[in-house]
Design a protein around this nucleic acid. Structure first.
Length: 301
DNA sequence: AAGGTGTGCAACCGCGCATTC
DNA sequence: AGAATGCGCGGTTGCACACCT
């Protein structure tokens, strides 16, 4: 048995909204709030599905929505967040309060994605796809704005690769815990032939980024638990500075016990959107300025 | 000018999750 | 406990417009 339709579709109008319909919906929501979207069309006098009304309100009518071209800064934020989060448009949109997830999604699909492909980067993984045909940065882009954006994209790509490199260092540690991390967050294509979900990539990269010595997350609200790393020689440079994140300081985690597995599994599975938001915001606002520094530091080790 | 093709965007659709009963 | 319901999300579609031949 299939799912019941969200509403009775017979007689309902579809397609583009007319100014009159917009006016009705706007007036109704301003007067009464939307409450139950399903009941909105009837109350507002619209021959529309409640879902359609909701979409129209969120993507078009809601006050404060910014329309028009995306700025270079918005570009940068979208690319950064997409590298971290994948196609989680609603979370990305939350960092651009005046933009809707639909608009960002469209912009990504019609603009940024193509630019990344032109650069020779996979828009899903943000990795280089074809080295032989790699187009030099700036090459073939006459528009100065493109060049700016490419710089941002290249900067972010550097940071992302660095994050992965740090993740690899964990594995070099050869502890059961780091092995567990890489099993649970199986994103390193050089280590595994498994197909990798964007979400796991996200977690993996975030984990690596959180471990970056230059990143001192100051959020005091996150419930994100980062276990203390095993004190292996190759990760000696990865130290836990004073941080407001809830670090797990119990050294018993260093053992290869089932308990440590549970801690890690719990950490990964309990990672909520809020946690991601907090971590991303911390990274974006405090870490992104030091991407170059972060990268330089690691290469000088 | 007309037809074909490409592009961008608004809107729809189906699914998953949370909540309610 | 599980069915019904509502909401939100991400993928996809279709239309309008721009550009090209």
């Amino acid at each position: 048995m299939g799912r019941m339709p969200c509403c009775e579709k017979v007689g309902l109008k579809k397609g583009p909204w007319t100014p009159d319909e917009d006016k009705k919906l706007l007036h109704y929501v301003r007067m009464h709030g939307h409450g139950n979207w399903r009941s909105v069309p009837a109350k507002a006098g619209l021959q529309r599905c409640g879902k359609s009304c909701r979409l129209r309100w969120i993507n078009y009518l809601k006050p404060g929505i910014k329309r028009g071209n995306f700025s270079a800064e918005e570009d940068r934020i979208i690319i950064q967040l997409h590298a971290l989060l994948g196609n989680r448009w609603s979370i990305i949109a939350a960092h651009l309060p005046q933009r809707t997830d639909n608009e960002i999604k469209n912009y990504w699909n019609t603009n940024i994605k193509k630019r990344l492909i032109r650069m020779g980067l996979d828009p899903i993984t943000h990795k280089t796809i074809k080295k032989n045909t790699f187009e030099p940065f700036g090459g073939g882009h006459d528009n100065p704005k493109d060049s700016i954006n490419i710089c941002h994209e290249a900067q972010w790509e550097s940071a992302r690769l660095e994050a992965e490199a740090r993740g690899s260092m964990l594995q070099i540690g050869s502890s059961n815990l780091s092995g567990l991390i890489l099993r649970k967050i199986p994103t390193e294509p050089y280590l595994s032939s498994h197909s990798v979900s964007t979400e796991h990539n996200t977690v993996y990269n975030m984990y690596a980024l959180v471990l970056a010595p230059n990143h001192d997350f100051r959020s005091s609200v996150s419930t994100l638990i980062i276990p203390t790393l095993p004190a292996v020689s190759n990760t000696a440079q990865i130290t836990n500075k004073e941080s407001s994140l809830s670090y797990q300081s119990d050294n018993s985690i260093m053992g290869a016990s089932g308990q440590s597995q549970k801690v890690m599994e719990g950490w990964v599975s309990n990672l909520q959107d809020d946690d991601i938001m907090v971590a991303v915001e911390a990274f974006r606002t405090e870490g992104s300025e030091s991407i170059e520094e972060l990268f330089n530091e690691s290469t000088s080790i």
